[in-house]
Measured scan of single mutants.
Amino acid sequence: QTIHNGDQTYHYDNPEEAIKVAQKLAKIYNLTVTVKGNTVQVH
């Protein structure tokens, strides 16, 4: 599972963990989380 947060990319073995982290980032920075296959984008 990969999270793209602007210019930063994070890799997680656990998809659920990746989505949790993405949602935390989204709340902190007031962003949107988009899940596309194995990629979670925060923008």
Rank of each mutant, 00 (worst) to 15 (best):
K24A: 13
Y10E: 01
T2C: 15
N38K: 05
A22I: 04
V35Q: 03
V33C: 05
T9E: 08
H4Y: 12
V21W: 15
G6Q: 11
V35F: 02
L31Y: 07
H43T: 06
T2F: 13
I28F: 13
V42E: 01
Q1S: 12
E16R: 08
T32I: 13
D7W: 15
L31I: 09
P15H: 14
Q41R: 13
Q8A: 12
K27L: 14
Y12H: 02
T9A: 05
G37H: 03
Q8F: 14
Q41L: 14
K20S: 08
A18M: 02
L25M: 05
V42D: 00
I3M: 11
Y29K: 11
G6K: 11
A26P: 01
H4A: 09
I3Q: 10
V42P: 01
Q41S: 10
N38H: 05
A26R: 15
K24G: 04
T32G: 03
E17K: 07
G6N: 10
A22M: 03
Y10W: 09
E17P: 00
N30K: 08
N14E: 03
K24W: 15
V35G: 00
E17I: 14
H43F: 12
V35A: 02
P15W: 10
N30D: 05
V42G: 01
P15I: 08
K24I: 15
A18T: 01
I28Q: 09
D13A: 14
V21R: 05
K24D: 06
D13G: 08
I3Y: 08
T32N: 09
K27D: 06
P15Q: 08
K24C: 15
N14P: 03
H11Q: 08
T34C: 12
T2G: 11
G37T: 02
Q23S: 07
V21L: 06
I28E: 11
Q8E: 08
N5K: 12
D7C: 15
N38M: 05
H11N: 05
K27P: 01
V42N: 00
H4Q: 09
H4S: 09
I28W: 14
T39D: 04
Y12T: 03
K27V: 07
T39H: 03
T34M: 05
K27W: 11
H4R: 10
N30L: 05
A18K: 00
K27C: 15
Y29N: 05
L31H: 09
H4P: 09
Q8K: 14
T32D: 05
D13F: 05
V35I: 06
H11A: 06
V40G: 00
T2D: 12
V42Q: 01
T9W: 14
I3G: 10
A26K: 13
I19L: 13
I19F: 13
A18Y: 02
Q1M: 13
V40E: 00
K24R: 14
N14S: 15
Q41Y: 15
G37A: 04
A22R: 01
V40F: 02
N30S: 07
L31M: 07
Q23E: 11
G37D: 06
T39A: 05
L25E: 00
A26H: 06
I28V: 08
K27R: 12
I28K: 11
H43E: 03
N5F: 14
E17Y: 07
Y29T: 07
V21D: 03
N14I: 03
V40C: 05
T39F: 05
A18Q: 01
G37E: 04
N14R: 05
T34V: 08
P15R: 07
H43R: 09
V33G: 00
G37P: 00
V33S: 01
I19D: 04
T39C: 14
V33A: 02
H11V: 14
V33F: 03
V35D: 00
D7S: 14
T34S: 08
Q1G: 11
A26Y: 06
G37M: 03
Y29E: 06
N5P: 11
V42T: 02
G6P: 09
T9K: 05
N14L: 04
D7V: 15
Y12N: 01
H4T: 08
T32M: 10
Q1T: 12
Q23I: 13
Q23D: 06
Q23P: 00
I19R: 14
I3C: 15
E16S: 06
Q23W: 09
V33D: 00
K24M: 15
I28Y: 14
G37I: 03
D13P: 10
V40Q: 00
E16I: 07
V42S: 01
N38S: 10
E16T: 07
D7P: 14
N38R: 05
P15Y: 09
Y12D: 00
T2N: 11
L25K: 00
L31P: 00
K36W: 10
